[in-house]
């Protein structure tokens, strides 16, 4: 019993990163129909920038916010320069997706060239460990979870109450109607990419502090975030968050009870089963194709 509780607690802590990435993926997809494969690398890049800032004497807390800003600006630039010129249309879903894969490649290579491919130690925002329900958990993980929840709370508030957030939901539902009201769809896309990539930066910042920082660190968490998105549905923000946390817990439990060697495979199997049972995920809806 104690086992399972500790597994769940650390699973939730791990899941916070997946949930943040998944939320970022969904926000960007809803606003621009782009599945952003570079979102993890954008977060990694921002975390490298934070590392350089810390090395230059910037306090860790300030570097944290710097990372968010860097990721957000890179996201805006990516959308403006690479996605927007493509135009609109259902057939461009994959073109946009493949472009972000290309962007991810360039970013990884760039980080490797600039900062090197060897893992770099990354300082935690809050060092130390505490005991929770008999398990030792790093304060970094606790902080990660807390910041993830704060960020999610902010996202919920932003989309629920801020005119811009409401406009973003409206634009996701019917972009032409949004344009008819004079809502600036270009700016909405920029904000979505800023938010999505900013959330990824938070996730990568804490993941780096958990182990170390290297250009390829985003691979595995991004995969789990996608698994979370599958569970929750590609268009549901709460679905993505719940899916991300669920994958964290599932990953932990499966790793413990079934096999630590086949974690990815187990996660994959779950995705396939979920798709069989509920093609749109548990909270998502099958969206009509946009014209």
């Amino acid at each position: 019993m104690g086992d399972i509780i500790s597994l769940i607690i650390s699973g939730i802590a791990n899941g916070s990163a997946y949930a943040l990435l998944a939320l970022g993926i969904v926000i960007i997809f809803r606003s621009t129909d782009t599945v952003n494969f570079a979102i993890g690398d954008t977060g990694t890049l921002a975390t490298f920038a934070a590392l350089s800032a810390i090395a230059a004497g910037v306090p860790i807390a300030a570097a944290f916010f710097l990372a968010i800003a860097v990721a957000g600006v890179v996201g805006i630039a990516a959308e403006r320069l690479l996605i927007r010129p493509l135009g609109h249309g259902q057939h461009l879903l994959f073109v946009a997706l493949v472009i972000t894969i290309g962007l991810g490649l360039v970013m990884q290579a760039g980080m490797g060239a600039f900062w090197g491919n060897t893992p770099k130690p990354f300082p935690p925002l809050v060092p130390g460990w505490i005991q929770v329900a008999g398990v030792a958990i790093s304060l970094n993980k606790i902080a990660a979870t807390v910041f993830a929840l704060i960020a999610m709370g902010f996202v919920a508030w932003f989309f629920g109450y801020m005119p811009f957030g409401i406009a973003m939901r409206a634009s996701a539902e019917d972009p032409l109607a949004a344009r008819m009201l004079g809502l600036n769809t270009g700016r909405i896309a920029s904000i979505a990419w800023f938010l999505g990539c900013g959330l990824a930066a938070i996730a990568m910042f804490f993941l780096a502090a958990e182990s170390s920082l290297n250009p390829h660190i985003a691979h595995s968490p991004l995969f789990r975030a996608f698994a979370g998105v599958f569970l929750g549905g590609l268009t549901s923000m709460p679905g993505a968050v719940i899916g991300g946390f669920a994958i964290g817990v599932l990953d932990n439990i499966a790793g413990h009870y079934i096999s630590a060697n086949y974690r990815d495979t187990i996660v994959f199997t779950v995705i396939v089963v979920v798709l069989f049972v509920r093609p749109a995920g548990f909270l998502g809806s099958i969206r009509k194709e946009r014209v």
Binding site: L97, D264, I271, P279
Partner: peptide, 28 residues
């Protein structure tokens, strides 16, 4: 058949997951 029931986008994402799982199996 799993992915095709919904959307071609899911094909792409599913193959990504498949390749990661396969890579893991190969390694182990």
């Amino acid at each position: 058949m799993t992915a095709g029931r919904f959307s071609i986008l899911y094909f792409g994402l599913l193959t990504l997951a498949l390749s990661l799982a396969a890579f893991e199996v190969i390694g182990r």
